[in-house]
Computed example of a mutant assay.
Amino acid sequence: MRSRGFTMIELLVTLAILGFLVAVAAPRYFGNMDRAKEDVLREDLYVMRDAIDKFYADRGHYPDALDDLVKEHYLRKIPIDPFTQSARSWVPVPPADPSLGAVADVRSGAPNTGRDGTWLKDW
């Protein structure tokens, strides 16, 4: 009677197949992660810019800080930048006329570039 079990060749073939599947799937996974982060960043920027515009339309001046958008209920909370993993890394852009407030626009503080080669801080 032969003892039951797998031979070394069967184990190596199985590991080679698994290694091949991981090698094919890993780049797609990480590519999708980067694309998802960029999509979240675009949406967060759109929502914050929309809140800034509504604040300006209602009050006639821009907010003095991003936290004013939360205090005045234009946002529930400041979103977390998906690349820096922080809600404090947003870079406020002042208006041309400083008497109108301090935050006319907002940009990401991430030092990365997007998939299209543009800097995330310029979006």
Rank of each mutant, 00 (worst) to 15 (best):
M1G: 13
R2G: 04
R4E: 15
T7I: 11
I9F: 10
L11Y: 07
L12H: 05
T14L: 14
L15M: 14
I17M: 13
F20H: 04
F20E: 03
V22G: 10
A23P: 02
A23L: 14
A23W: 12
V24R: 13
A25Y: 09
A25L: 15
A26T: 11
P27F: 11
P27S: 13
R28W: 11
R28G: 11
R28N: 11
Y29E: 09
Y29I: 12
F30M: 08
N32G: 14
M33E: 13
M33G: 02
D34Q: 11
R35Q: 10
A36E: 08
K37C: 00
E38C: 04
V40P: 00
D44S: 09
L45F: 03
A51G: 05
I52Q: 00
Y56P: 04
D58P: 01
R59W: 11
G60T: 05
G60H: 03
H61I: 05
H61F: 14
Y62A: 04
Y62C: 03
D64L: 14
D64I: 04
A65R: 13
A65S: 15
L66M: 14
L66W: 00
L66I: 13
D68W: 00
D68M: 03
D68A: 14
L69A: 01
K71A: 12
K71N: 07
E72N: 07
E72V: 01
H73W: 04
H73T: 05
Y74N: 01
Y74C: 02
L75K: 01
K77H: 06
D81R: 00
P82V: 03
T84F: 04
S86V: 06
R88P: 00
W90N: 01
W90E: 03
V91L: 12
V91N: 05
V91C: 05
P92S: 06
P92A: 06
V93L: 09
P94E: 06
D97I: 08
P98L: 08
G101Y: 01
A102C: 09
D105E: 10
D105P: 03
V106I: 15
G109A: 08
A110D: 06
N112H: 15
G114K: 06
R115Q: 13
D116E: 09
D116A: 07
D116C: 08
D116S: 09
D116H: 10
G117Q: 07
T118S: 15
W119Q: 12
L120W: 00
L120F: 04
L120V: 04
D122I: 06
W123Q: 10
